[in-house]
Design a protein around this nucleic acid. Structure first.
Length: 458
RNA sequence: GCCGACGUGGUGUAAUCCGGCGAGCAUGCGGCCCUGUCGCGGCCGUGAUCCGGGUUCGAAUCCCGGCGUCGGCGCCA
């Protein structure tokens, strides 16, 4: 049988499906697998009904794509027609019938139904329109995320997110890192108590962890040596921007016997691996997002600018009202100006020690200069990392200088007395990676159920 | 934490400056017609000014408070 017409045609790509294997379960055929000549049972949601009078079409949608079901009123059983065309949009139905080649159908194939069963009727008034004829605001979409995720372009974001996480895990494994999971309920935070969510833990004060930083460092001194974690972090800051979440996904890496340069190497490799995997495996999703032409994996090495060069270049753009001086943190506006100037992902290295956290090691030959680095997308910060302070006395000193009580971090510091190797690592914002990769206007688009300052449900 | 903008049918918008006829349009929903739609089409119908108070002959529109939403900065991933 010739299969080169129909659902492999270029104009019908949105109806086709992704590369995932599709097992047949309970005799069900995914719409993308329905071939002319097959007798199938397809199940999914009623995407649309187009009633032309004597003939009518029901578009059935499932995870793999869409397929057209044909109803010819004069030639088919009245009950069958009534069931098939009386159902509301977005209801769940099972259709059994024969698949035929049909050039006039959107995918080139069409189902002539023998039976139609409504498994779950949908209310006629939907809180948003999954067929996408009328846009919904982000707030409405997030309140009705289940329906929102029936749209191809929204679903695509999360298929891509899954692919990014898969590729990132694989790259970490390639460099001999072991995936770990660390506690999210903790007694003390990483950098003090100000930005933590307090909770009650069997009558004791506890917090939601803002970063796996301290735990992953403890693991480089363990037999695991080189670890990574992909997990939630919680930040209680009351910001309200399109690039902040109060619950985010952190992609963390930490390695014994590595310095900040090597940590940057891994960071760069991981980000590139994510882009390459999406480029290779998610073309359909990119098309759904209308990014197939502009999406490209970053080429070449990410430039590594020193902090000093960074502020000089920002000052040279003339876009800031006030010139930056050594010791200033980079304001958002400055980051954007620099991003435009550089034009690709880049690192900022050699930050002043005073604006980096205590666990970052200073350069041996200059105490004012830290090994901390940030990795930037032209639009925003994605990563921060550095070589860590592994010397017990220096670490305790660092706590004191930041006004923290080393006693309350004893669980952490004491392990530095029993053979803690030099080490380095980084934390990468998972949602920011997705957001910048896909050019999403709001980071909430990259999370199924975002937690922000005012949103706690769903 | 500081600052700002916005809340109109189920959804998305117009009218808001400069108060005034029946709050318009699209989509949805309901009805009728239509045998190849693919944003199907045509006709008819349906449904809304966030809440409370104030100013006014008259408030979606102006003022005050509340609630909600979105954003800018700071800080960060």
């Amino acid at each position: 049988m010739v299969k080169d017409s129909g659902h492999s045609s270029a104009e019908s790509t949105v109806f086709k499906s992704r590369r995932l294997k599709r097992p047949r379960m309970q005799g069900r055929t995914y719409t993308a697998d329905a071939e002319p000549g097959d007798t199938v049972k397809v199940a999914g949601w009623v995407h649309e009904i187009r009633d032309l009078g004597g003939i009518a079409f029901l578009i059935l949608r499932d995870k793999s794509g869409k397929i057209q079901v044909k109803f010819e009123k004069d030639e088919m059983d009245d009950d069958l027609v009534e069931t098939g065309l009386g159902v509301h949009r977005e209801s769940v139905v099972v259709v059994e019938g024969d698949v035929e080649e049909e050039p006039r159908a959107p995918t080139g194939v069409e189902v002539t139904p023998e039976s139609v069963e409504v498994l779950a009727d949908a209310d006629p008034e939907l809180p948003l329109d999954p067929s996408g004829k009328v846009d919904a605001e982000l707030s409405t979409r997030l309140d009705n995320r289940t329906l929102d995720l029936r749209k191809d372009e929204v679903k695509a974001i999360f298929e891509i997110r899954a692919e990014v996480l898969r590729a990132v895990r694989e790259k970490f494994r390639d460099v001999y890192a072991t995936e770990i999971n660390t506690p999210k309920i903790v007694a003390t935070g990483t950098e003090g108590g100000t930005e933590l969510f307090p909770i009650t833990y069997f009558g004791k004060e506890a917090f939601m962890n803002q970063s796996p930083q301290l735990f992953k460092q403890l693991m480089v001194g363990s037999g695991l040596e080189r670890v990574f974690e992909i997990g939630p972090i919680f930040r209680a800051e009351e910001h309200n921007t399109p690039r902040h979440l109060n619950e985010a996904t952190s992609i963390d890496f930490e390695s014994a016997f590595a310095d900040h340069q090597e940590a940057m190497d891994v960071c760069e490799a991981v980000v590139k691996a994510a882009y390459e995997a999406v480029d290779e495996n998610c073309q359909e999703e990119l098309e759904a997002l209308d990014l197939q032409d502009e999406f490209e994996a970053p080429e070449g090495d990410f430039p590594r600018l020193s902090y000093e060069e960074a502020i000089e270049r920002i000052n040279a753009t003339g876009k800031l009202d006030e010139q930056l001086v050594w010791g200033d943190d980079l304001p958002t506006e400055g980051e954007k100006a620099l991003g435009e100037d550089v034009g690709t992902h880049y690192f900022i290295t050699d930050w002043p020690s005073e604006i980096k956290p205590f666990y970052i090691k200073d350069h041996d030959d200059d105490e004012q200069l830290s090994t901390g680095f940030d990795m930037m997308h032209p639009n925003m910060e994605l990563v921060s990392g550095g070589q860590r302070e592994h010397r017990y006395e220096h670490l305790v000193e660092g706590f004191e200088q930041q006004g923290l009580d080393p006693e309350s971090f004893e669980y952490y510091t004491k392990m530095f007395k029993y053979g803690m190797p030099p080490h380095a690592g980084f934390g990468l914002g998972g949602e920011r990676l997705i957001m910048t990769m896909l050019g999403l206007g709001n980071i909430r688009e990259a999370v199924l159920f975002p937690r922000d300052r005012q949103r706690l449900s769903p």
